[in-house]
């Protein structure tokens, strides 16, 4: 894979691995990712036995040239944004590994697993308490929000 930048090389590797061994209920749109390796769409199924059973979600991953040193920008997109205390109605997700606790040893796959687990452990479907205000004032890029992480239980 000569001629690729380190971030592109790493993303190619991740794409191959996600195609071959995807976590259950997770499917990456390979054609789109191959057209533009810096922007992926991933389909995610609600896990059976959880509040999201039978639902389909779409996640968008955007990568910078500094990936994996910079975290990916991850948002829910499309018609069905999961109703969850850490997911805003514009698709922004409050999850510490997407900003403060990101490490270059994490991957698209580990982000997907964290999001699946965040959804699966939810006990009540509701939006974050400050949803209306946040959605009105936030930047389009969730990484430009200074998140305040304090709740481990949901």
């Amino acid at each position: 894979m000569a001629g690729l930048s380190p971030s592109e090389r790493r993303l190619q590797k991740e794409l191959m691995s996600l195609m071959k061994e995807p976590p259950p209920g997770v499917v990456v749109d390979v054609d789109l990712a191959e057209q533009n390796i810096l922007q992926w769409i991933i389909q995610m199924e609600g896990v059976s036995g959880t509040l999201y059973e039978g639902e389909q979600f779409q996640l968008q991953f955007k990568f910078s040239r500094k990936y994996p040193f910079d975290s990916p920008e991850v948002t829910f997109i499309g018609a069905n944004i999961p109703v969850h205390p850490h997911v805003y109605s514009n698709g922004h997700i409050c999850l510490s590994i997407l900003t403060d606790d990101w490490s270059p040893a994490l991957s698209v796959q580990s982000v997907c697993l964290s999001i699946v687990s965040m959804l699966s452990s939810c006990k009540e479907k509701k939006r974050p308490p400050d949803n209306a205000f946040y959605v009105k004032t936030c930047n389009k890029n969730p990484k430009k929000t200074k998140w305040w992480y304090h709740d481990d239980s949901v």
Binding site: P85, H86, C94, L95, S96, I97, D101, S114, S117, M118, P128, P129, D130, Y134, T145, K146, W147, W148, Y149, H150, D151, D152, V154
Partner: peptide, 9 residues
């Protein structure tokens, strides 16, 4: 893993 609410700022 930690998850949370929005910044107060």
């Amino acid at each position: 893993m930690k998850m949370a609410d929005k910044s107060e700022s």
